[in-house]
Write a protein that binds this DNA or RNA. Structure first.
Length: 666
RNA sequence: GCGCCUGUAGCUCAACGGAUAGAGCAACGGCCUUCUAAGCCGUUGGUUGCGGGUUCGAAUCCCGCCGGGCGCGCCA
């Protein structure tokens, strides 16, 4: 807000210079307004003269002085100085700074919002783990990052759609194995080879046994009711499939002597769907406890059911992007994606390769996606020799669907874990293949560029959990995994042993989210559980939350003393805020929209945690120096109360974007 | 072998290409008869892994080394 004011004044000054004959000034890029490190450099600085000296054809200091002269009439500045090699240093009048308290209060909950020049519809896909286990602490980082990113993009003026992709394709061997493992556990029989084990698998088995011990009427009615309502086509397909399965299961159940008998006779397909449904339910519940919600839980299988995948493949075959010629192109790519070496690998025709495909069942030739035409380093298989489709085939249909929905996305953001960076190339190629226009000299290259503009794959790096100074294992030997919900509950129990389980979960959620978000998503981070559970100076979450609780306490005390924080404070009273600690606090509060805009641009959501800590520090410092409630100074008291209200707002909204609660008492 | 990420204070990390590289913790010293001391104030701490280059200016961009993490299936 204040920064925008300074920028506007500079732009006005440049316009003036342009009119006065310095033509180049009209085409300077929008000037940057940065913080100053030393107080003697004023409140803000700009390097506009340094950057544009060449274009203006004069030394930076001379240009800076010209701009400073043109700025002389701006009413908000106490001084505009030229310093160093050509910086412009701005010193604002205290009352100009203080007046932004009123602006912040006027914005209210919309404080972080910044007007975006080109608001977009952005589809953000994140978490998207397989439905064969709970959300782990590893995926927790993606969940925290993705959800905070969505909040930030929204605050920056975009329309955001939060999406979870369920890998429930019927061809998935993993899911079949998962279903068979559950069957064994439910029946008390030995697990299949390499079967899933662990408490959560047993929990699914127990739930299914329990479910099948009585009629499924309730679940079936529930699905019918949902289907009677207005729902998206993809969701309708998913629910219809689930209903058909439940009806088959119910028939089998009614004919069986007991739950065990029923489970023994269920087809793998039907059992798999029951397992998935339960697992997804648990994921959804765990994520909700983590403060993460999705607009869409998209089922991969629903694409197959509707024939979308086959349609998509046919389209690519017709366009000549996919074919069954028996070769694979393999490229060696340079740093900037240029092709260093191209190799055509003829496909072996024999069945001597041990690739897991059923021997002697090669009923059709391999279908290739010629993804090397779109920057990928090798062509990818769409349909295997045994006729089964690969997940890339589903990915094609899925991305096409994302673009084609009624809510059409301008941009797709996909957040993936550290073991997925190999996907960037092929996903980009997939999108390029879809976006390719049928004609044009350079259709492939243009499609690739378009894909790079419209699909952004964000990889977050690995997170290591440290306890008692040692890395904590993410997977225990007995097959149990470190679930996100376990972390939340462990943190909550340790920090708030006397509280209710719900409250404990919220405490754990706040701690976990803040810690995940403190580090840039592309650095490897250590999550120090001991530090997170320390209730002391070392814990930044409490530091920030305490600042908020403290403000609220002051506001309550003021009410008791008969003072109300004015929502529309008088400029003359705000002008009483002239103490450096007061002004520093105002500047930081007013900076939230700028911070949000930056985070939305480069996805550096972690900077918001730094911002929150800095804002809290400035409030604590202000609180310590400037007594708020002073009955003998009613005007100053009102001004400071307005500042307190604005500080509470800034803290609450910054924490809100991070998905962390702002308690009014601690 | 190739690719992605990364290397900043004792530790964990910040720093739109900007001025003297900053916080927190740890260590040391102060501050509660007044609004929440889960707080504040101060001191100490650096060859930004190494070497080149680009420019008015580099922790940041480019090249080359060195170290760490992860990934490179007709698995998902």
């Amino acid at each position: 807000m204040i920064r925008d004011l300074v920028r506007t004044r500079i732009e006005e000054a440049l316009q003036r210079l342009a009119r006065e004959g310095l033509a180049a000034a009209a085409s300077f890029p929008s000037p940057e307004v940065s913080d100053t490190r030393q107080p003697e450099h004023g409140d803000y600085a700009s390097n506009v003269a340094l950057l544009n000296a060449k274009a203006a054809g004069m030394p930076p200091r001379i240009l800076a002085e010209r701009i400073a002269e043109a700025l002389a009439e701006a009413p908000e500045f106490e001084a505009v100085e030229v310093a160093g090699p050509g910086f412009l240093n701005f010193r604002l009048k205290p009352e100009s700074v203080a007046s932004f308290v009123a602006e912040a209060l006027r914005r209210g909950d919309g404080l972080p919002r910044s007007r975006h020049e080109e608001p977009q519809r952005i589809n953000v896909e994140f978490v998207s783990v397989n439905p064969n286990g709970p959300i782990t602490v590893g995926s927790g980082r993606g969940a925290a990052f993705g959800s905070a990113l969505c909040n930030v993009l929204e605050a920056a003026g975009h329309t955001v759609h939060r999406e979870y992709y369920i890998n429930d394709g019927v061809n998935s061997e993993q899911m079949r194995l998962f279903a068979e493992s559950v069957r064994s556990l439910a029946l008390g029989e030995p697990l299949p080879d390499k079967g899933y084990k662990g408490d959560y698998v047993q929990a699914v088995a127990d739930r299914i046994s329990e479910m099948l011990s009585r009629p499924l009427a309730e679940a079936i009615d529930g699905l019918r009711t949902a289907l009677a309502g207005e729902i998206d086509p993809w969701e309708r397909r998913t629910l219809e499939r689930r209903l058909a399965t439940l009806l088959r299961v119910e028939e089998r159940r009614a004919a069986s002597a007991d739950a065990a008998g029923c489970i023994r006779e269920l087809s793998t397909e039907d059992l798999k769907l029951l397992c998935e449904t339960l697992m997804i339910e648990r994921q959804r519940s765990d994520l909700a406890d983590f403060g993460v919600r999705f607009d869409t839980w998209f089922s991969e299988q629903s694409l197959h059911d509707a024939g979308e995948v086959e349609r998509c493949l046919q389209r690519l075959i017709d366009a000549g992007i996919a074919d069954t010629e028996p070769y694979q192109t393999v490229l060696k790519l340079g740093k900037n994606g240029e092709v260093l070496e191209s190799q055509r690998v003829e496909q072996a025709t024999g069945d001597d390769e041990d690739d897991g495909a059923p021997q002697g069942e090669a009923v059709q030739p391999t279908l290739w996606l010629r993804s090397t035409r779109f920057g990928d380093d090798k062509d990818r298989v769409l349909r295997r020799r045994d006729g089964r489709l690969t997940y890339i085939a589903s990915d094609l249909a899925y991305h096409l669907d994302k673009f084609n929905r009624p809510s059409q996305a301008d941009r797709l953001v996909t957040v993936l874990g550290p073991d997925h960076h190999g996907y960037i190339g092929r996903l980009t190629a997939v999108v390029a293949a879809l976006l390719r226009k049928p004609d044009g000299e350079d259709a492939d290259r243009e499609a690739l560029e378009e894909a790079r503009r419209r699909l952004q794959v964000v990889i977050f790096q690995i997170v290591r959990f440290v306890k008692e100074g040692k890395p904590a294992p993410m997977r225990k030997r007995d097959g149990n995994i470190y679930a996100l919900i376990d972390l939340i509950e462990e943190l909550g129990r340790t920090m708030a042993p006397e509280e209710s389980p719900e409250r404990q979960k919220e405490v754990g959620k706040d701690l976990a989210r803040f810690f995940y978000l403190m580090r840039s998503h592309d650095t490897h981070m250590d999550f120090d559980i001991d530090l997170a559970t320390r209730r002391s100076d070392e814990n930044p979450v409490f530091y920030v939350q305490y600042a908020h609780a403290r403000v609220c306490s002051v506001l309550r005390k003021a009410e008791e003393a008969g003072f109300h924080a004015p929502l529309q404070p008088e400029p003359s009273e705000l002008a009483l805020l002239a103490h450096p600690k007061e002004l520093a606090l105002v500047k930081k509060i007013a900076d939230l929209p700028h911070e949000v805009r930056r985070c939305a641009e480069d996805f550096g959501v972690h900077r918001l945690t730094t911002y929150a800590v800095e804002l809290a520090r400035l409030y604590h410092a202000f609180y310590d120096t400037c007594r708020v409630i002073q009955p003998e100074e009613p005007a100053l008291t009102r001004a400071r109360l307005s500042l307190c209200a604005a500080a509470a707002l800034g803290l609450r909204r910054a924490l809100g974007l991070l998905g962390v609660s702002a308690p009014e008492r601690m």
